[in-house]
Amino acid sequence: MEALLTTAFLTALVTGAVTAGIPLLLAGLGEQMSEKAGVLNVGIEGMMLAGAFAGFFAAYMSESIALGFLAGALGGFGVALLMALLCVRLGLNQIVIGIGLTLGFEGITALLHYNLFGRSYPRLPAVETLRIPGLADIPVLGPAFFDRPLIVYVAVLLVFVVSFVYRRTNLGLYLQAAGDKPAALDVTGIDVVRIRTFAVLTAGTLAGLGGAFLSEVGAGLFVPFMTNGAGFIGIVLAMLARGRPFWVLAGAAIFGACLSLTTALQVAGVNVPTDVIQMIPFAAVMAVLIIFGRNAHLPAALGIPYVRGAR
């Protein structure tokens, strides 16, 4: 066990946890906003994949990570646009369309990858980091938290921004009302459909960024189906966080640590089959749901399309 507690191992573990946690954080924040406004977004996995592919493609072609993230956000936004049109505007079933979109974009991204990169499997160079002087020199925590790509800081900053929006702005109130009592919101003259559309599109954009992070920063390449359930974990985080962005951050950190442990233990030569370790995060969710299940709060009108005048 002593060999496990070296500085190098701990640094790798914490750094890996941050790298694995950021996509979950972005997806979870997005899903949280969507759920708050009453749209259960099961298509988030597809949005992440679209973002992952678009981000990788743009970053590879333009050799610019920033453009990559822009494209990733747009990719997620594009899928969310479909979701908003079908589920918010037309009021089709959110779960059904969500599954359809996830399946569809699993296929489309895999197909595009096969056609464009199926023979070459290109990789992106390592992403440049933004070193925060002083803090970055702390052992273990420094390299893990304060010597990372810009997008990591942006993602964490977003938690504060979103939290502020929910607590202090009218928009936050509208979002909450759209999920809890859409008819009441409608009466005050705010368009429920518009608020929900905004929430779904924001969710898609954040999920797209999360996907782009997976392919650009996490892996450095695109692999078909690479999100591997990250979007679904995002949904769980959003449900357990009960509308609080900081809880999503905490959840993403815990899940990131579980995922990071998988790789770190293997690197350290601990002989446990990967499958056992891969079970940890999902077993953790189930344990949390069994213990705190009763407290999982969901907006009253979640999953129900809003049609003005229909009862």
Binding site: G229, F232, V236, P273, D275, M279, L289
Partner: peptide, 20 residues
């Protein structure tokens, strides 16, 4: 507790468990 989440979690868990 919403079963969409729990069944999806159990499916990921089950896939790995089957491999184990």
């Amino acid at each position: 507790v919403n079963e969409i989440i729990t069944t999806l979690m159990m499916t990921f868990l089950g896939t790995s468990f089957a491999n184990v």
